[in-house]
């Protein structure tokens, strides 16, 4: 325990900068993931024929072991944070896409028909009915994507993109358990922290009338 605290103090600068890199990687990957998957999720509810194949493709990516995916990308994109980000984005897509689609498709048809029958345009139906009612699902998808990304970002070190994986890897190479822990613990805390914050947002995003 003492050696762990010593490690924390002596490697303070390195740990903090790795921590910040880790947040940066996860955050940017999730943000771009949302920017792609949310509109795509909405679009495929309008063209349902294409929904299954598109979700299927993202699901296939999801099944590639993360280390292997990083490995595939290096020969194409080289070493560096863009490669790490692209891999992370690929993982973030599926949960957001799937939940956006399922959330919107799951909105009760009679509610939408009522809106149509009262003269709402398609955009009004999307913004005032479908999105608010699907929001809890969409938020849950973003939460899953975030936790997933925070975990997988530890592998960014293998493509030279930094993050807390650096610390863990270094600790492993030098048989320094305290250093491994000094990298792993922040990852866990980060995942739990993001999860809690997003859970809170998810609750707030649930339309009032739907809470029981």
């Amino acid at each position: 325990m003492k050696s762990f605290l010593d490690t924390l103090v002596s490697r303070q600068d390195m740990i903090i900068s790795a921590f910040l890199e880790h947040i940066y990687l996860s955050f940017v990957a999730v943000a771009i993931g949302i920017a792609i998957a949310l509109p795509l999720g909405i679009i495929i509810t309008r063209y349902r024929r294409y929904a299954e194949p598109i979700i299927g493709v993202t699901a296939v990516f999801q099944t590639i072991p993360s280390l292997a995916l990083f490995g595939f990308l290096v020969p194409i994109l080289g070493i560096g944070s863009p490669t790490a980000l692209i891999a992370l984005i690929i993982y973030a897509l599926l949960p957001i896409l799937r939940n956006t689609y399922a959330g919107i498709v799951g909105v009760d048809g009679s509610t939408i028909e009522a809106g149509r029958g009262m003269g709402m345009t398609r955009t009004q139906i999307l913004r005032q009915i479908e999105l608010p009612l699907a929001l809890p699902f969409i938020m849950a998808g973003i939460r899953t994507a975030t936790v997933l990304t925070v975990g997988i970002a530890t592998l960014a070190t293998f493509v030279g993109a930094g993050g807390l994986g650096d610390i863990i890897y270094r600790g492993l190479q030098s048989y320094n358990n305290s250093l491994v822990l000094a990298g792993a613990l922040p990852v866990a805390l980060l995942a739990i922290g993001f999860d809690q914050i997003l859970k809170w947002i998810e609750k707030r995003a649930t339309p009032k009338g739907l809470k029981t």
Binding site: S110, T111, E113, A114, G115, R116, G117, M118, G119, M120, T121, I129, P132, L133, P207, K208, G209, L210
Partner: peptide, 22 residues
Amino acid sequence: EVQLRRSIGYVIQRIGLFPHMT
């Protein structure tokens, strides 16, 4: 059709109130 629908009241078979609106 949008204008027409706004000028005609419509009560749907299964109530169809918007649950997230007051």
